[in-house]
Design a protein around this nucleic acid. Structure first.
Length: 115
DNA sequence: AGGGTGACGATCA
DNA sequence: ATGATCGCCACCC
């Protein structure tokens, strides 16, 4: 008993959870999501999670620099949805300085901001 | 167990 | 600026 292998480390779950925290009208990047989820080098895996887990705001996840990575019509769809949320593009990119969502530093409680 | 994959990211030409 | 290559790493067969 001592220990049961329980389950495998659901890093995908962590990633999905992070994505779900992106508020409407804001965006994030694969790299930022991966980092917030605890795996800074797994930006690639984020894209898989988006495909695997339905119900996620997939459109709010962009490539580095705020560029849309999704090719084809879905890429256009993504841009359309984002603009509908109020996210503005500068050419082919989103102005991350204004629209990137900053995830709370995974600090152990003691919320950094709490009055 | 081994190997291929990918909505990436950074770097180089 | 655009395009090509390499590096990374969990997931899937």
């Amino acid at each position: 008993m001592t220990k049961k292998p329980a389950d495998k480390p659901p890093i995908s779950i962590a990633i999905a959870a992070v994505i779900r925290r992106i508020p409407r009208g804001k965006v994030s990047t694969y790299g930022a999501v991966a980092e917030a989820a605890g795996c800074p080098k797994n930006a690639r895996h984020v894209s898989k999670v988006l495909n695997q887990v339905p119900g996620l705001p997939w459109q709010r996840v962009l490539g580095s620099g705020g560029r849309i990575s999704l090719p084809g019509e879905y890429g256009l769809e993504q841009r359309f949805l984002l603009e509908a949320e109020g996210v503005r593009f500068k050419g082919r990119r989103v102005d991350l300085a204004s629209f990137e969502h900053k995830f709370p530093a995974a600090r152990r409680l003691r919320s950094t901001s709490r009055r």
